[in-house]
Simulated assay, not measured.
Amino acid sequence: MTPLDARQSKPLEGGASFSLGNRLLRVCWGLAWLLLARFTPAPLHGWRRLVLRAFGARVGRGARVHGSVRIWLPANLELGENCLIGPGANIYNQGRITIGARSVISQGAHICASTHDIADPHFQLLLRPVAIGTQAWVAAEAFVGPGVTVGDRAVIGARAALFEDAAADGVYAGNPARLVKQRQLREP
């Protein structure tokens, strides 16, 4: 879904950034999540996968999404097998967000796939997809910004703010997040 032209919709004057159809769909989605998933017991991941799929998300087998997660629009979400989205995470996917297999998005993390054109006097909304690789970890309350790619097995430390791509096996910390070391996985 593409945003409306800010010159015509005038979001700085209270106008919408998305079409009426998109906004109605998100109202239906929000009500469905609230009534069908928000207060479900933690082990009912299968039920929440079903609700997400009903609204267009691509959800891999065994993916776990907690009921307190906020997802802007399931149709812009792809979850790999056995990934986990922890309690209170915010998946702000105006643009597409892809999370790879066996990756973990910890409690309170925020993944954002949109920004605004700061050079545009109308403040046009820009969609910037986010891709998180396999076996990556976005730790508690970390922020992953628009257009960022998180490489396979990368770690974004707690409360880090990532605005640039993270290399595979890199461990990042701070605001802005910087590479602090390489991740070394032990043999199982």
Rank of each mutant, 00 (worst) to 15 (best):
E141K: 11
D152Y: 09
S114H: 15
V130D: 01
L127D: 05
A140Q: 11
Q135V: 01
A139T: 13
G157P: 14
L126H: 04
H122I: 04
H116E: 13
T115K: 11
A154F: 09
V155Y: 05
R159C: 08
C112L: 14
F163W: 15
A140G: 00
A161H: 14
T134R: 15
E141R: 14
D152W: 08
V144P: 02
A119R: 15
D120L: 10
D152K: 08
I132C: 02
L126N: 02
A158C: 09
G157V: 13
F123W: 15
Q124G: 06
T149R: 12
Q124Y: 05
R159N: 12
F123H: 15
A158I: 13
R153D: 10
D152E: 11
Q135H: 14
I156Y: 08
I132F: 03
L125C: 10
V155P: 10
P129T: 06
H116K: 06
A160C: 12
D117C: 12
A158F: 10
I111N: 05
H116S: 11
R128W: 03
A142D: 01
D152I: 11
W137I: 12
A119L: 14
R159M: 13
A140S: 06
D117V: 14
E141D: 10
A119N: 13
G147Y: 04
G133R: 02
P129R: 00
H122G: 00
V155M: 09
L125W: 03
C112K: 06
I118P: 02
A158H: 08
G151Q: 09
A131S: 11
F123E: 00
G157Q: 13
Q124F: 07
I132Q: 00
A160V: 12
D117W: 04
R128C: 13
G157F: 11
L125Q: 07
R128F: 03
D120Y: 11
Q124L: 03
G151N: 07
G133A: 04
D120C: 06
G147A: 07
V138W: 01
V130I: 09
H122P: 07
A158W: 07
G157W: 12
G133D: 04
G157I: 10
L125F: 02
A113G: 09
F143R: 01
A158Q: 11
G133T: 05
F123N: 11
T134E: 13
V144E: 00
V150R: 01
A161V: 15
G151V: 13
G145Y: 05
V150H: 04
F163D: 09
P129A: 00
T115S: 15
V150S: 03
L126T: 14
A139L: 05
D152A: 10
I132G: 00
D117A: 13
F143K: 01
D152S: 08
Q124E: 08
A113L: 07
T115R: 12
H116T: 15
E141F: 03
V138M: 00
P129C: 00
G145C: 05
S114Y: 14
V150D: 03
